[in-house]
Computed example of a mutant assay.
Amino acid sequence: MIQIDKALIEKITEEVKRQIKKYETGIPVGVSNRHIHLSHEDLYKLFGNGYELTKYKDLSQPGQFAAKETVSIEGPKGSFKKVRILGPVRKDTQIEISVSDGFKLGITPIVRESGNIGDTPGVIIKGPKGRIVKNKGVIAALRHIHMPVDYAREHGFNNGDMVTVITEGIRKTAFYNVLIRVSDKYNLEMHIDMDEANSSGLKNGDRVEIVKK
């Protein structure tokens, strides 16, 4: 008859729990490819009066979704086709690209917090029913962490804090000037763009640690 070492089983169980807990610590990462947020006015100009976006899939943040619809954007030197629209519609149209995307378009995106589009470059946007010339709205999004209120309170963070974040792996990286955005409408997640993800070897779902406030 096989003897069961209960003490050993308990020890193994605790070690498994410890490893799972270790894996679950930190901030999950979401990598953003180029995309666009449209105002109602611009949506109608591009797709027709009264048009409504069609949900393709939900995003990690509650209420946010990727639409089935895409547009083309054009700069002085080049263009991108099939740029995904993210919903819901916003007050102002905003185009989020990486710095390397700007090289192809022939513009220099300014690193800004989402929504802060004053004195930023513009592009031409083309949809199936129209064409718009925007004189502003293109940014490279300031890396940031969406943080629920209860998590922020528990860990001593406030909306608008700037923190330093480190990654693990062969391309271990320190990200400075990461903005904390606190809301009861957020799920915990750090957002970076494709340039930042490629430089640090990060992908969706990887976890990072805040090391300095």
Rank of each mutant, 00 (worst) to 15 (best):
Y176Q: 14
E74Y: 15
P88W: 02
K136I: 07
S79C: 04
G156N: 05
G102F: 02
N135M: 13
S39E: 10
V99S: 12
I73T: 06
V133C: 00
S72T: 14
T173E: 07
G156E: 11
S114W: 03
H144V: 10
G160D: 09
V99H: 12
V111R: 15
N159L: 01
K129Q: 13
E41Q: 13
K134L: 15
G106A: 07
T167F: 11
Q61M: 08
K104M: 11
A67C: 12
M162V: 07
K104P: 09
S98E: 10
I124G: 02
T120P: 11
F65N: 08
L38W: 08
T54F: 01
S39K: 04
H37Q: 06
V165I: 09
P121F: 07
V83T: 10
D119A: 12
I97F: 00
D92A: 11
K91R: 15
K91E: 15
R84T: 08
N159P: 01
A152R: 05
F103T: 14
K91H: 12
P109E: 06
T173A: 03
Q61D: 05
H155M: 11
I125C: 03
D58Y: 09
I124V: 13
I139E: 08
H146L: 07
G48V: 05
I139P: 08
V89C: 11
M147W: 04
L43S: 10
R84Y: 00
G48D: 09
E113C: 00
P128T: 01
F103E: 15
L43T: 11
E96I: 06
R171A: 14
T70H: 02
K57S: 14
